[in-house]
Design a binder for these strands. Structure first.
Lengths: 238, 238
DNA sequence: ACTGATTTGTGCGTATGTATC
DNA sequence: TGATACATACGCACAAATCAG
């Protein structure tokens, strides 16, 4: 740090932290060292560090949580909930790069929740598609998508050929499916969920249960999505 | 317990627990004794207790959390989010008894969030109304409601006279206010929030930020509500 | 980050009553 | 009557998750 130039110390420090963030040395969501540690590293008083942090908070690059620490702000994605809810479209509009990975495709027997949502009999077969949705290479959500086997008997092949749920449903003539309802709750993540989402066990996840219907109002998909609550904000426009 | 009749032991035990729940001896949200304790009390094997609990979980009366315990399912209120979002109406429809208590009424200077949402200048005065919403005498949510002072100069008097936000807004000629947007996130509660909502620190809260507009599309209220995530489910019908 | 105590989850083996063929 | 299958109940041991310190 240069203690003579016309540039305030705190501003130089702020610029350096800002540089570390843009150079990805400090990644979104990372915890900064404590103010006391930073003060030692930069050989300045803690108040000087606090002035730098205050500046970057004001700029929206850092966030401070009393008793926990100072963090690089994580990607906050607005996830729009509406009739036409499409992950990829929503994310692209925010100039971010969405990716959906497939974890598994299985056939299971419908439990009460699934059967009730899809309006089929309990214990009939449904396909379960597990996906991970990522934005700029950071996991955002885990999705479980249930489809009635009776209606989509060759779903697995079509999905593998098409590569995405939207495209697959188009092939089945349901390109114009709509979101009927979304139920939203929050809870702590399981160990598996936390490890997939790369998040702490004590940070909550947002859970949405949704039903998608075709143009004849028939339910074609029941989906449960588990979002990292620190990285997403659900938005309802009414 | 009668060990001779044609009725299985586990079923008799399940019925007794069910009775305790309906007689309010076991209240919603309460933790049951551990399986081992119940086994001792009923003088049966732990497996027998487990069979009873499994039955009541199936019936939706209990929920089990590994490592934590078995609980009487708590009130799960569906909170509908739409153009006309009104707490009292929503709750009455579900045959429950809503109460709104006022914690405080203060005047503060608008920060960036508040000013941006209400489309007023930063640092102009706003009224802040803090409320607690209860259902059947259990706290459900803490609300912070911000109103521009310029538009509602005598808000405090009118609110005290009317007793509710809806009625107050009616007096101001805004009875037909509508919900424009709702943003939903989740996070752990602060100590204060946990104590007001009577919930554990490690259970998350749902946070909604909403903007209400009058018939001329002017924002008249910016509200932040913090719901106990274990007791509410937000529902979006599209 | 680790520890020990608590609590539920799971699997094994055994025994007995009850219904059916 | 006997054979078989199934539901019920008990005992023990360990795995996995939670929680407080």
């Amino acid at each position: 740090m240069d203690r003579v130039a016309g540039l305030a110390l705190w501003r130089q420090i702020a610029d350096q932290i800002k540089g570390d963030i843009s150079k990805d040395i400090l990644r979104p969501g990372c915890k900064l060292p404590t103010e006391i540690l930073l003060a030692q590293q930069f050989k300045v008083n803690r108040h000087t560090i606090r002035r730098s942090i205050a500046e970057l908070v004001e700029e929206g690059l850092l966030k401070v949580e009393q008793g926990r620490g100072t963090f690089v702000v994580d990607y906050l994605v607005d996830y729009q909930l509406g009739r036409r809810t499409r992950f990829t479209e929503t994310v692209l509009k925010q100039n971010k790069n969405p990716i959906a990975k497939t974890l598994s495709i299985t056939t299971i027997s419908a439990d009460r929740d699934i059967a009730g949502s899809l309006k089929i009999d309990e214990k009939t077969d449904v396909f379960c598609l597990e996906t991970i949705r990522e934005i700029d290479n950071r996991p955002l959500a885990i999705g479980s998508h249930y489809f009635p086997k009776q209606r989509f008997p060759d779903l697995i092949e079509v999905f593998k050929a098409e590569g995405s749920i939207s495209n697959m449903l188009s092939k089945f003539g349901c390109g114009d499916y709509e979101r009927q309802t979304t139920k939203i709750t929050a809870r702590p993540p399981t160990k598996r969920e936390a490890s997939i989402l790369l998040q702490a066990r004590n940070r909550p996840i947002l859970v949405t249960e949704s039903i998608n219907i075709d143009k004849d109002k028939q339910p074609i998909e029941y989906g449960v999505a588990r979002f990292s609550a620190d990285r997403v904000q659900l938005v309802v426009e009414t």
